[in-house]
Design a binder for these strands. Structure first.
Length: 215
DNA sequence: GTCCAGGTGCACC
DNA sequence: GGTGCACATGGA
């Protein structure tokens, strides 16, 4: 699956951010939102010199919401960014210090306790900003995995994540970041949510309904 | 007009 | 532990 996606879409080189801090903010802003809208919000934040942890804490919530308006859910996301800023203060806004402070799963648990950070956002932050070996599951991933399996009940986040983690053919350091990005590229390219059959997929011929040979 | 996008929190059962 | 709903903009 990885090889086919890479051959079709080429290296994605994720995450698209200039700094690790920008990555964290982008992870919150992109929740259920297109990346182009996130870019607009990030541009506004840069112009306002608000793309730093202190600004997330100090900027008026209303003003913060206005900046990130294009990314949707702006009131909710403004509160989430505030919570992120306050969380980072515990580590003196030092991301190196944060990601080196404790074992991966403890870090994950801590991130999940922050308002606005759920499983996908936490894992994205750990993988792309922290450089830690954890696979990111998103709606595209669940959709494609569900289609690869013959009916039955749908996968949950941690179950899907386990499938990637226990696959010895995938090297965490080399493949996790790129693999997730490729799945997103494929998800954007084809397999609309409203096409339950998805039997015309030109890239992944296992991405169809009906009997499967893939586990 | 309808559907969808790199989810999450919360109230209910 | 699961389900339903709110949160909101912008492009196809």
């Amino acid at each position: 699956m990885y090889d086919r996606l890479l051959a079709e879409y080429g290296p994605q080189g994720w995450w698209p951010a200039e700094t690790d801090f920008e990555m964290l903010v982008g992870a919150v802003l992109t929740q259920n939102t297109t990346w182009t809208n996130v870019e607009r919000a990030l541009t506004n934040m840069k112009k306002a010199d608000a793309l730093n942890a202190a600004a997330l804490r100090d900027t008026d919530l209303e003003r913060l919401a206005a900046m990130i308006h294009p990314s949707g859910y702006f009131n909710a996301k403004a509160r989430k960014l505030r919570a992120l800023g306050e969380f980072l203060a515990r580590y003196d806004d030092d991301l190196i210090r944060l990601f080196r402070s404790k074992p991966l799963l403890e870090l994950r648990k801590e991130l999940l306790a922050v308002f606005g950070i759920g499983p996908e956002t936490a894992d994205s932050m750990l993988l792309y900003a922290g450089g830690l070996p954890i696979f990111v599951i998103d709606s595209y991933t669940l959709r494609v995995l569900d289609r690869m399996r013959s009916g039955g009940r749908e996968l949950k986040y941690e179950t899907a994540q386990r499938l990637f983690h226990r696959d010895k053919g995938i090297d965490p350091e080399r493949h996790y970041g790129e693999f997730h990005a490729l799945i997103v590229a494929h998800g954007k390219d084809t397999c609309r949510a409203s096409d339950p059959a998805c039997d015309q997929c030109p890239v992944l011929d296992m991405c169809r309904t009906g009997p499967r040979t893939v586990a």
